[in-house]
């Protein structure tokens, strides 16, 4: 079983960090084969950035993503440029206020997640990426959140509890999003 996810956003939103957290949880705590590759625009801050994660039970030869099981995007072009890579059975997790979903109305794969607001409520804007990650895992790769929680605790020892809550919040938002249609938001 092979699973491919692209997490993308603008510099500073933590897309690559979210990819590393997801990848290390799968590699070190779930015993999967994992490759995370990164990409970013030439601008150090403000440009796009992305983490691509391939998770597999078998050793991974070609290390890059080709057909996405999940796309997580926190900016508009992330949706526009990458939709064509998403499998028919894949999911698209989009930040509800940062991405305009009017063009993908009716696409059952797309789930808007109000991660920015949720992060604000948690008290830290920078938690948006972790909220998104929680949602993505709940929607695209339903599994226990425990390895992910361990991974964020290791990665952010000083804000461990807050990050764990961000993951839970993301999972909760995902469950709520499943019951809503995109039409109701636009």
């Amino acid at each position: 079983m092979k699973f491919e996810i692209r997490i993308t956003g603008l510099g500073g939103q933590g897309a690559i960090t979210a990819g590393h957290v997801f990848g290390s949880a799968a590699a070190l705590l779930e015993g999967k084969e994992v490759v995370v590759t990164e990409g970013y625009s030439p601008y150090v801050t403000g440009g796009w950035s992305r983490a691509d994660v391939v998770v597999s039970d078998e050793p991974i030869d070609y290390p890059l993503v080709s057909r996405l099981d999940a796309l997580v995007t926190m900016y508009q072009e992330g949706l526009d440029l990458n939709m064509k890579m998403v499998k028919p059975t894949g999911v698209v997790v989009a930040e509800q206020r940062l991405v305009d979903l009017s063009k993908v109305v009716g696409d059952k794969r797309v789930f808007p997640i109000p991660a920015a607001d949720a992060a604000d409520k948690l008290g830290k804007k920078v938690l948006m990426n972790i909220v998104m990650l929680g949602s993505a895992v709940a929607l695209a790769a339903p599994r226990s959140l425990e390895p992910l929680k361990k991974a964020v605790m290791e990665r952010f020892p000083k804000a461990a509890e807050l990050n764990v809550r961000a993951l839970d919040t993301g999972a909760d938002l995902a469950r709520a999003a499943k019951g809503r249609s995109i039409e109701s938001l636009v």
């Binding site: 590699a27 070190l28 084969e33 490759v35 995370v36 590759t37 990164e38 290390p63 890059l64």
Partner: peptide, 9 residues
Amino acid sequence: QIVAMMWER
């Protein structure tokens, strides 16, 4: 660049 920037176990 690929092998340098990729993360693996």
